[in-house]
Design a protein around this nucleic acid. Structure first.
Lengths: 221, 221
DNA sequence: ACTCACGTCAAACAAGGGTTTCAAACGCCC
DNA sequence: GGGCGTTTGAAACCCTTGTTTGACGTGAGT
């Protein structure tokens, strides 16, 4: 098996000699999984794209599922950290009770900004979104039970909207997340066809504002 | 194994005696696909659940993908038909220009009503939602290019909101659909954990009202 | 120079997948 | 009842998959 005390520091700035092929596998896998789906990518596809040997995945990660899970773990952790940071900043700026709009910004901004075509983490966002619908059982288990991250946002919204019953808040948060998770390449394509090219997904700043406007109105209804 | 050769529900318009096993395969496949995902269900799983021979799928449908596509075709057609009907009724009731709320109701009501635990088509809705994220290439092709159904709703919304630029309408329709497509079993589970059991997905009427309230406010923002 | 841990490589393995085959059984019509 | 197209049954086929194996190369430590 591999080592148990895994250095879970970021792989972007890694000690290049020991983890060269491991990093190559990681990035190639993330890319292929995000583009074609988890089940439609074989370990041979990944190792071919990364230019490494077939056995590398099992040697460095243990199994294909473990590799998947490690990508999932790292990317969701990064996303959650950035979201929590923004929520914290918003709380500080508003005396501990940020308004709905600021909470929604903390929820939407990180994934949206990262979806910018020029951003290095664009593919990571697509990977995370995909994990939600086609993830393995262990990933779904995490998504289902680890709600501590989301609870912060729910609590902030409950504090910002004291006139609404919490049940209503939970549902509206569910709706807002649905809006967000629908931002997949395939859905953009459909929208592009429907609008005859009017909609431009590449303008993420405009999209972010649109999403926040829509969701804020929904919360304040 | 179980009483599988029982479903005498006719298959829309089939001579019922010859298609007994075909119908059994159809319903078993829809159920398993909706519950466990397309790639996680083998033809052996389906034929075992249906209590028919392994070769039945290839004989009656040609291939596993063709079976998938036929279920997809039929269920989306049914859903689109019902939606179009409701939109038509709403248009008649409002002199050809139904308000936003009526349009959203036509969009949300059919899939939501069918999601009622007691409804026979509950599983079909989950199947359709799944097709959007894990469908085969041919299914995605249909979803991407066949936008005639959705165009009716977009046009109705544009007529109902003349002060908004069409681009804005398209995006908000995209958001509304995201809200809807997020209604998967797994997401309900997560919401259930988060809210500590406060939210009840079984109350589809309340959920429908909540969704329409939220989306209407977003459109009128 | 020897050792030994570590990474890499080609090859093979075992399992599961969808599909095909062909004989047997069935249903219907003359 | 006999013929004939259709459906079912059990078995096999063949390909892809993830994983494992054991040899080989490398490089630092003594």
């Amino acid at each position: 098996m591999t080592d148990a005390a895994e250095p879970l520091e970021d792989l972007a700035a890694d000690p290049e000699r020991e983890a060269a092929t491991k990093a190559a596998v990681f990035t190639a896998a993330e890319r292929l999984f995000a583009l074609h789906g988890f089940q439609n990518v074989s370990v041979r596809d990944i190792t071919a794209e990364a230019g490494v040997n077939l056995a590398s995945i099992n040697y460095h990660f243990g199994s294909k599922d473990a590799l998947l899970f490690e990508i999932f773990r790292r990317r969701t952790a990064e996303l959650n950290r950035e979201r929590a940071r923004m929520l914290h900043v918003a709380a500080d700026a508003h005396g501990g009770r940020p308004p709905v709009r600021a909470i929604l910004a903390a929820l939407f901004e990180p994934p949206l900004r990262w979806s910018n075509p020029a951003h290095e983490r664009r593919i990571s966002v697509q990977f995370i979104i995909r994990a939600r619908s086609e993830g393995t059982e262990s990933m779904k288990e995490v998504l289902r039970t680890d709600v501590s991250h989301l609870r912060r946002f729910a609590d902030a919204l409950i504090a910002a909207l004291p006139q609404l019953p919490p049940e209503e808040i939970y549902w509206r948060l569910h709706f807002a997340l649905g809006m967000l998770h629908n931002n997949r390449f395939a859905e953009f394509d459909r929208l592009h066809v429907l609008s005859d090219g009017v909609t431009r997904e590449s303008d993420v700043e405009a999209l972010l504002k649109r999403m926040i406007d829509f969701a804020e109105a929904g919360f304040l209804a």
